[in-house]
Write a protein that binds this DNA or RNA. Structure first.
Length: 312
DNA sequence: GACCCGTGGTG
DNA sequence: TCACCAAGGGT
Protein backbone atom coordinates (compact mmCIF):
# COMPACT_ATOMS: atom_id res chain seq x y z
CA UNK A 1 0.00 0.00 0.00
CA UNK A 2 2.83 2.34 0.79
CA UNK A 3 4.37 2.04 -2.67
CA UNK A 4 4.11 5.50 -4.25
CA UNK A 5 1.52 6.47 -1.66
CA UNK A 6 1.93 8.68 1.37
CA UNK A 7 1.62 7.16 4.83
CA UNK A 8 -1.26 9.41 5.89
CA UNK A 9 -3.29 8.33 2.87
CA UNK A 10 -2.63 4.65 3.51
CA UNK A 11 -3.48 4.44 7.22
CA UNK A 12 -7.29 4.14 7.03
CA UNK A 13 -7.03 1.67 4.13
CA UNK A 14 -4.45 -0.36 6.04
CA UNK A 15 -6.60 -0.52 9.18
CA UNK A 16 -9.66 -1.72 7.26
CA UNK A 17 -7.58 -4.19 5.27
CA UNK A 18 -5.80 -5.75 8.24
CA UNK A 19 -9.08 -6.08 10.10
CA UNK A 20 -10.62 -8.07 7.24
CA UNK A 21 -7.47 -9.98 6.33
CA UNK A 22 -5.45 -10.27 9.55
CA UNK A 23 -3.03 -12.91 8.27
CA UNK A 24 -1.66 -14.36 5.08
CA UNK A 25 -3.88 -17.46 5.20
CA UNK A 26 -7.03 -15.35 5.51
CA UNK A 27 -5.88 -13.12 2.68
CA UNK A 28 -5.05 -16.06 0.44
CA UNK A 29 -8.59 -17.37 0.91
CA UNK A 30 -10.15 -14.05 -0.09
CA UNK A 31 -11.46 -13.28 -3.56
CA UNK A 32 -9.89 -10.67 -5.80
CA UNK A 33 -13.22 -8.86 -5.61
CA UNK A 34 -12.94 -8.57 -1.82
CA UNK A 35 -9.35 -7.39 -1.94
CA UNK A 36 -10.00 -4.78 -4.63
CA UNK A 37 -13.04 -3.52 -2.70
CA UNK A 38 -10.67 -2.76 0.18
CA UNK A 39 -8.31 -1.08 -2.30
CA UNK A 40 -11.08 1.04 -3.84
CA UNK A 41 -9.92 4.67 -3.99
CA UNK A 42 -6.30 3.94 -3.16
CA UNK A 43 -5.12 3.61 -6.75
CA UNK A 44 -2.48 1.45 -8.44
CA UNK A 45 -4.81 -1.53 -8.17
CA UNK A 46 -2.20 -3.95 -9.50
CA UNK A 47 -0.69 -3.69 -6.02
CA UNK A 48 -3.82 -5.24 -4.56
CA UNK A 49 -4.00 -7.95 -7.18
CA UNK A 50 -0.30 -8.71 -6.69
CA UNK A 51 -0.65 -8.81 -2.91
CA UNK A 52 -3.35 -11.44 -3.23
CA UNK A 53 -1.23 -13.44 -5.68
CA UNK A 54 1.70 -13.26 -3.28
CA UNK A 55 -0.42 -14.41 -0.34
CA UNK A 56 -1.69 -17.41 -2.31
CA UNK A 57 1.84 -18.21 -3.43
CA UNK A 58 3.06 -18.08 0.16
CA UNK A 59 0.30 -20.41 1.31
CA UNK A 60 0.75 -22.80 -1.61
CA UNK A 61 4.55 -22.90 -1.71
CA UNK A 62 5.68 -22.00 1.81
CA UNK A 63 2.90 -23.43 3.98
CA UNK A 64 1.67 -19.96 4.89
CA UNK A 65 5.05 -18.97 6.32
CA UNK A 66 6.49 -15.76 4.86
CA UNK A 67 9.81 -16.64 3.18
CA UNK A 68 12.95 -15.53 5.00
CA UNK A 69 15.25 -15.46 2.00
CA UNK A 70 15.74 -12.16 0.13
CA UNK A 71 15.80 -13.88 -3.25
CA UNK A 72 12.53 -15.66 -2.50
CA UNK A 73 10.92 -12.44 -1.34
CA UNK A 74 12.15 -10.55 -4.39
CA UNK A 75 10.28 -12.82 -6.81
CA UNK A 76 6.95 -12.39 -5.02
CA UNK A 77 4.59 -10.39 -7.25
CA UNK A 78 4.55 -6.70 -6.34
CA UNK A 79 7.79 -6.84 -4.39
CA UNK A 80 10.82 -5.34 -6.09
CA UNK A 81 14.35 -4.53 -5.06
CA UNK A 82 13.52 -1.75 -2.63
CA UNK A 83 10.56 -3.40 -0.93
CA UNK A 84 12.39 -6.70 -0.55
CA UNK A 85 15.30 -4.84 1.00
CA UNK A 86 12.98 -2.93 3.32
CA UNK A 87 11.37 -6.15 4.54
CA UNK A 88 14.64 -7.96 5.20
CA UNK A 89 16.36 -4.92 6.73
CA UNK A 90 13.53 -3.83 9.01
CA UNK A 91 12.12 -7.24 9.95
CA UNK A 92 15.25 -9.36 10.10
CA UNK A 93 18.07 -6.84 10.40
CA UNK A 94 19.79 -7.83 7.19
CA UNK A 95 22.27 -5.37 5.77
CA UNK A 96 20.48 -4.11 2.65
CA UNK A 97 19.84 -0.73 1.06
CA UNK A 98 16.47 0.60 0.08
CA UNK A 99 15.75 3.37 -2.43
CA UNK A 100 12.33 4.96 -2.24
CA UNK A 101 11.17 8.48 -3.04
CA UNK A 102 12.35 9.90 0.26
CA UNK A 103 15.76 8.27 0.11
CA UNK A 104 16.25 9.39 -3.48
CA UNK A 105 15.67 13.00 -2.45
CA UNK A 106 17.92 12.76 0.62
CA UNK A 107 20.76 11.15 -1.33
CA UNK A 108 20.44 13.47 -4.33
CA UNK A 109 20.95 16.40 -1.97
CA UNK A 110 23.47 14.81 0.37
CA UNK A 111 25.65 13.62 -2.51
CA UNK A 112 24.87 16.56 -4.82
CA UNK A 113 23.55 14.43 -7.67
CA UNK A 114 22.04 16.22 -10.66
CA UNK A 115 19.41 14.80 -13.02
CA UNK A 116 15.93 13.41 -12.57
CA UNK A 117 16.02 10.53 -10.07
CA UNK A 118 13.68 8.49 -12.27
CA UNK A 119 16.27 8.37 -15.02
CA UNK A 120 18.06 5.05 -15.24
CA UNK A 121 21.64 6.29 -14.91
CA UNK A 122 20.76 8.62 -12.04
CA UNK A 123 18.90 5.84 -10.26
CA UNK A 124 21.82 3.46 -10.69
CA UNK A 125 24.14 6.04 -9.18
CA UNK A 126 21.73 6.54 -6.27
CA UNK A 127 21.67 2.78 -5.61
CA UNK A 128 25.48 2.78 -5.51
CA UNK A 129 25.49 5.73 -3.09
CA UNK A 130 22.85 4.04 -0.94
CA UNK A 131 24.99 0.94 -0.66
CA UNK A 132 28.20 2.87 -0.04
CA UNK A 133 26.63 4.90 2.78
CA UNK A 134 25.00 1.88 4.44
CA UNK A 135 26.49 1.39 7.93
CA UNK A 136 27.93 -1.93 9.03
CA UNK A 137 25.49 -2.29 11.91
CA UNK A 138 22.09 -1.00 13.03
CA UNK A 139 20.79 -1.03 9.46
CA UNK A 140 17.15 -1.23 10.56
CA UNK A 141 17.42 1.93 12.64
CA UNK A 142 19.43 3.63 9.92
CA UNK A 143 16.90 2.73 7.22
CA UNK A 144 13.92 3.90 9.22
CA UNK A 145 15.76 7.09 10.13
CA UNK A 146 16.65 7.75 6.52
CA UNK A 147 13.03 7.47 5.43
CA UNK A 148 11.78 9.52 8.37
CA UNK A 149 14.39 12.19 7.69
CA UNK A 150 13.14 12.46 4.13
CA UNK A 151 9.56 12.71 5.32
CA UNK A 152 10.14 15.25 8.09
CA UNK A 153 13.46 17.10 7.62
CA UNK A 154 14.70 16.73 4.05
CA UNK A 155 11.26 17.49 2.62
CA UNK A 156 10.58 18.36 -1.00
CA UNK A 157 9.80 21.98 -0.27
CA UNK A 158 11.07 24.05 2.65
CA UNK A 159 13.49 21.45 4.02
CA UNK A 160 14.50 22.02 7.62
CA UNK A 161 18.25 22.08 6.98
CA UNK A 162 18.91 23.88 10.27
CA UNK A 163 17.71 20.78 12.12
CA UNK A 164 19.41 18.29 9.83
CA UNK A 165 21.74 15.84 11.57
CA UNK A 166 24.02 15.60 8.53
CA UNK A 167 24.01 19.24 7.43
CA UNK A 168 27.78 19.68 7.64
CA UNK A 169 28.33 16.86 5.15
CA UNK A 170 25.50 17.71 2.76
CA UNK A 171 26.90 18.65 -0.64
CA UNK A 172 23.75 20.48 -1.72
CA UNK A 173 23.57 22.55 1.45
CA UNK A 174 27.23 23.48 1.39
CA UNK A 175 26.86 24.52 -2.27
CA UNK A 176 23.54 26.29 -1.53
CA UNK A 177 21.77 24.02 -4.03
CA UNK A 178 19.14 22.40 -1.79
CA UNK A 179 16.38 24.19 -3.67
CA UNK A 180 17.62 22.81 -7.00
CA UNK A 181 17.99 19.17 -6.00
CA UNK A 182 16.69 16.71 -6.80
CA UNK A 183 16.16 17.86 -10.39
CA UNK A 184 12.47 17.91 -11.34
CA UNK A 185 10.96 15.39 -13.71
CA UNK A 186 11.23 16.51 -17.35
CA UNK A 187 8.07 18.27 -18.42
CA UNK A 188 5.75 16.37 -20.70
CA UNK A 189 2.47 17.27 -22.33
CA UNK A 190 -0.34 15.38 -20.62
CA UNK A 191 -2.83 14.12 -23.21
CA UNK A 192 -6.52 14.70 -22.59
CA UNK A 193 -9.43 12.39 -23.36
CA UNK A 194 -13.20 12.69 -23.14
CA UNK A 195 -15.61 10.01 -22.12
CA UNK A 196 -19.28 9.66 -21.23
CA UNK A 197 -19.96 7.65 -18.09
CA UNK A 198 -23.38 6.05 -18.43
CA UNK A 199 -25.24 5.84 -15.14
CA UNK A 200 -27.76 3.18 -16.15
CA UNK A 201 -30.47 3.16 -13.55
CA UNK A 202 -33.48 0.93 -12.98
CA UNK A 203 -35.44 1.45 -9.80
CA UNK A 204 -32.82 2.02 -7.14
CA UNK A 205 -30.16 -0.03 -8.88
CA UNK A 206 -27.41 0.96 -11.26
CA UNK A 207 -25.37 -1.13 -13.66
CA UNK A 208 -21.63 -1.64 -13.36
CA UNK A 209 -19.27 -3.45 -15.72
CA UNK A 210 -16.15 -5.32 -14.71
CA UNK A 211 -13.14 -3.84 -16.44
CA UNK A 212 -10.48 -6.01 -18.09
CA UNK A 213 -7.83 -7.40 -15.73
CA UNK A 214 -5.09 -5.29 -17.27
CA UNK A 215 -4.93 -1.59 -18.02
CA UNK A 216 -6.43 1.32 -16.15
CA UNK A 217 -8.68 0.35 -13.23
CA UNK A 218 -7.98 -3.31 -14.00
CA UNK A 219 -10.57 -5.65 -12.48
CA UNK A 220 -12.63 -2.82 -11.01
CA UNK A 221 -16.33 -2.17 -11.48
CA UNK A 222 -17.15 0.87 -13.55
CA UNK A 223 -20.06 2.49 -15.33
CA UNK A 224 -20.06 1.84 -19.09
CA UNK A 225 -17.77 4.34 -20.81
CA UNK A 226 -18.48 5.48 -24.33
CA UNK A 227 -17.45 8.29 -26.64
CA UNK A 228 -19.99 11.08 -26.68
CA UNK A 229 -21.09 10.15 -30.20
CA UNK A 230 -21.49 6.48 -29.29
CA UNK A 231 -24.08 6.83 -26.56
CA UNK A 232 -27.16 6.25 -28.76
CA UNK A 233 -25.35 3.41 -30.47
CA UNK A 234 -24.63 1.77 -27.15
CA UNK A 235 -28.24 2.05 -26.00
CA UNK A 236 -29.70 0.58 -29.17
CA UNK A 237 -27.10 -2.18 -29.32
CA UNK A 238 -28.24 -3.31 -25.89
CA UNK A 239 -31.95 -2.74 -26.56
CA UNK A 240 -32.19 -0.22 -23.78
CA UNK A 241 -35.39 1.83 -23.58
CA UNK A 242 -34.81 5.15 -21.86
CA UNK A 243 -37.54 6.78 -19.81
CA UNK A 244 -35.44 9.70 -18.60
CA UNK A 245 -32.10 11.21 -19.55
CA UNK A 246 -30.20 13.79 -17.51
CA UNK A 247 -26.72 15.10 -18.28
CA UNK A 248 -24.82 15.84 -15.11
CA UNK A 249 -21.97 18.31 -14.75
CA UNK A 250 -18.78 17.37 -16.54
CA UNK A 251 -15.72 17.02 -14.34
CA UNK A 252 -12.08 16.17 -14.87
CA UNK A 253 -10.17 13.27 -13.40
CA UNK A 254 -6.40 13.59 -13.56
CA UNK A 255 -4.19 10.53 -13.85
CA UNK A 256 -0.41 10.66 -13.82
CA UNK A 257 -0.20 10.23 -17.56
CA UNK A 258 -3.45 11.69 -18.92
CA UNK A 259 -6.48 13.78 -18.10
CA UNK A 260 -9.97 12.38 -18.45
CA UNK A 261 -12.93 14.69 -18.98
CA UNK A 262 -15.90 12.79 -17.64
CA UNK A 263 -19.42 13.57 -18.83
CA UNK A 264 -21.85 11.67 -16.60
CA UNK A 265 -25.22 10.84 -18.13
CA UNK A 266 -28.01 9.54 -15.94
CA UNK A 267 -30.20 7.16 -17.92
CA UNK A 268 -33.30 5.62 -16.41
CA UNK A 269 -34.24 2.38 -18.09
CA UNK A 270 -37.72 1.02 -18.64
CA UNK A 271 -36.43 -2.44 -17.78
CA UNK A 272 -33.22 -4.28 -17.05
CA UNK A 273 -31.76 -5.44 -20.35
CA UNK A 274 -30.66 -8.99 -20.90
CA UNK A 275 -27.04 -9.01 -21.86
CA UNK A 276 -26.00 -12.28 -23.36
CA UNK A 277 -22.93 -11.15 -25.25
CA UNK A 278 -21.23 -9.75 -22.18
CA UNK A 279 -21.64 -11.39 -18.79
CA UNK A 280 -19.39 -9.08 -16.83
CA UNK A 281 -22.06 -6.72 -15.61
CA UNK A 282 -24.04 -6.42 -12.42
CA UNK A 283 -26.96 -4.41 -11.03
CA UNK A 284 -26.43 -3.01 -7.55
CA UNK A 285 -28.17 -0.69 -5.14
CA UNK A 286 -26.20 2.47 -4.40
CA UNK A 287 -25.03 1.36 -0.97
CA UNK A 288 -23.97 -1.98 -2.35
CA UNK A 289 -22.15 -0.34 -5.28
CA UNK A 290 -20.31 1.98 -2.91
CA UNK A 291 -18.97 -1.08 -1.10
CA UNK A 292 -17.70 -2.65 -4.30
CA UNK A 293 -14.32 -2.35 -6.02
CA UNK A 294 -14.89 0.94 -7.83
CA UNK A 295 -12.46 3.66 -8.90
CA UNK A 296 -12.53 7.11 -7.37
CA UNK A 297 -14.57 9.00 -10.00
CA UNK A 298 -17.27 6.33 -9.98
CA UNK A 299 -17.43 6.67 -6.20
CA UNK A 300 -17.86 10.42 -6.63
CA UNK A 301 -20.72 9.89 -9.04
CA UNK A 302 -22.49 7.37 -6.83
CA UNK A 303 -22.19 9.67 -3.83
CA UNK A 304 -23.69 12.48 -5.89
CA UNK A 305 -26.60 10.24 -6.88
CA UNK A 306 -27.10 9.17 -3.28
CA UNK A 307 -27.20 12.80 -2.14
CA UNK A 308 -29.72 13.77 -4.83
CA UNK A 309 -31.96 10.84 -3.90
CA UNK A 310 -32.10 12.06 -0.32
CA UNK A 311 -33.29 15.39 -1.63
CA UNK A 312 -36.14 13.77 -3.52
C1' DG B 1 14.48 0.87 -21.77
C1' DA B 2 10.38 3.33 -22.15
C1' DC B 3 5.99 3.26 -20.79
C1' DC B 4 2.06 2.09 -17.88
C1' DC B 5 -0.38 2.11 -13.52
C1' DG B 6 -4.28 6.14 -9.32
C1' DT B 7 -5.09 9.18 -6.06
C1' DG B 8 -4.59 12.86 -2.83
C1' DG B 9 -1.53 16.27 -0.49
C1' DT B 10 0.96 20.48 -0.97
C1' DG B 11 2.70 24.95 -2.01
C1' DT C 1 -5.24 26.37 -10.70
C1' DC C 2 -1.59 23.49 -11.45
C1' DA C 3 2.83 21.29 -11.24
C1' DC C 4 5.04 17.98 -8.64
C1' DC C 5 5.35 13.88 -6.24
C1' DA C 6 4.69 10.08 -2.62
C1' DA C 7 7.39 3.56 1.96
C1' DG C 8 7.81 1.44 -6.73
C1' DG C 9 6.89 -2.45 -9.65
C1' DG C 10 5.45 -4.79 -13.90
C1' DT C 11 5.68 -5.36 -18.77
Amino acid sequence: MLQQTQVATVIPYYLRFIESFPDVVTLAAATEEQVLAHWSGLGYYARGRNLLKAARLIVDNYGGQFPRDYEQILVLPGIGRSTAAAITALAWYERRSILDGNVKRVLARFCGIDGWTGERKVEELLWRKAEKLLPESDVAVYTQALMDMGATVCTRSRPRCVNCPVKTDCVALQADRVGQLPSPRPRKVIPERKSSFLLLKHGNEIMLEKRPASGIWGGLWCTPQVDEAEEANYLSRHNMQITRRIELDTFTHAFTHFKLHIRPVLLELASKPLRTEQQGCVWLGLDEALGAAIPSPVRQLLLTMQASQRND
